[in-house]
């Protein structure tokens, strides 16, 4: 059950240009967090910026009662958030939305993340490892400095393949360049989050080899709970009806989405 809680910030650090990780104590919400769900975060107490920001759950420690968010500064709201200090409180509502579906433990999971899109895949990786799945992450970023989640993935036990567009670390190019024809496609599941052109390539790959997978979509939201109908999206070009990313998603089956 989602709820509203004031999280006590225990750690807030800049990890790259325009990228931050914030950890706060919110035991009641942490208990409920499933991978792929999001929190609706109020960036400040003023009327401007007004609305909450939907941010993926980057990690959660249910025993400790803490939640971590990895976010990129993209506008006034996230910019205001960067000023939050340790021992400040942050007003959160969550966890919200439909998260990732976990596969059978015998499956091998492929996590394909681009930029800040790696965030929900980290908490997913933790759940997959706990489940006993084999997991590999492919992580794309503009450059070495923007590859921010590597340490956390290693700590969780997820091996990752770094890819940078400028070649400053790992494979030079696009993260989707690493998607090679699978030997046993039925043994694999794929999860992706990141820029839409990247997810489009992952979806194309999953379709070509008939691999089960899920994507996490992003949309501007107002309510976050399915009331305002603001975050509408047609999953396929010919669909008449719109899904609401906040309530029907943000995670969707990869075969259901046309990019």
């Amino acid at each position: 059950m989602p709820l509203q809680e004031n999280g006590l910030v225990i750690n807030h650090q800049q990890v790259a240009q325009d990228m931050y990780i914030m950890e706060f104590m919110a035991p009641a919400v942490a208990r409920e967090c499933q991978p792929g769900q999001f929190l609706h975060v109020r960036p400040g107490n003023t009327n401007d910026p007004l609305l909450r920001r939907p941010l993926s759950i980057y990690d959660a420690d249910q025993e400790k009662g803490s939640i971590s968010l990895l976010y990129r500064v993209v506008g006034a709201g996230t910019s205001l958030m960067t000023g939050i200090r340790e021992n400040d409180y942050i007003d959160i509502v969550g966890p919200l939305g439909r998260g990732f579906t976990l596969p059978a433990p015998s499956k091998t999971a492929l996590l394909v993340g681009g930029g800040v899109g790696i965030a929900p895949l980290v908490y997913l990786g933790r759940a997959l490892i706990q489940r006993g799945c084999q997991v590999t992450a492919m992580m794309g970023a503009a450059n070495e400095n923007q590859l921010v989640a590597g340490d956390r993935l290693l700590e969780i036990g997820v091996p990752f393949l770094p890819v940078t567009m400028d070649g400053s670390r790992g494979y030079p190019g696009m993260v989707t360049d690493l998607l090679v024809p699978p030997v046993y496609p039925e043994e694999i599941v794929i999860y992706t989050c990141g820029p839409e052109p990247m997810m489009a390539k992952v979806a194309e790959y999953a379709q070509r080899y008939d691999i089960w997978g899920e994507v996490s979509l992003e949309e501007h939201m107002a309510c976050g709970v399915g009331a305002c109908l603001g975050c509408a999206r047609r999953l396929k070009a010919n669909d008449e009806a719109y899904v609401k990313v906040c309530k029907d998603g943000p995670v969707f089956n990869i075969m259901d989405v046309e990019f």
Binding site: N47, D48, P49, L50, L51, E219, H220, M221, A222, C228, L229, G230, C231, A232, R233, R234, E240, A241, Y242
Partner: peptide, 23 residues
């Protein structure tokens, strides 16, 4: 009614615009 295509909402100074289209 299916409502309007996205973009349907946009935050502005101390407010927001919406064009849901009565979905």
């Amino acid at each position: 009614r299916h409502g309007n295509p996205p973009v349907r909402i946009f935050e502005t100074a101390a407010g927001m615009l919406n064009a849901i289209g009565l979905e």
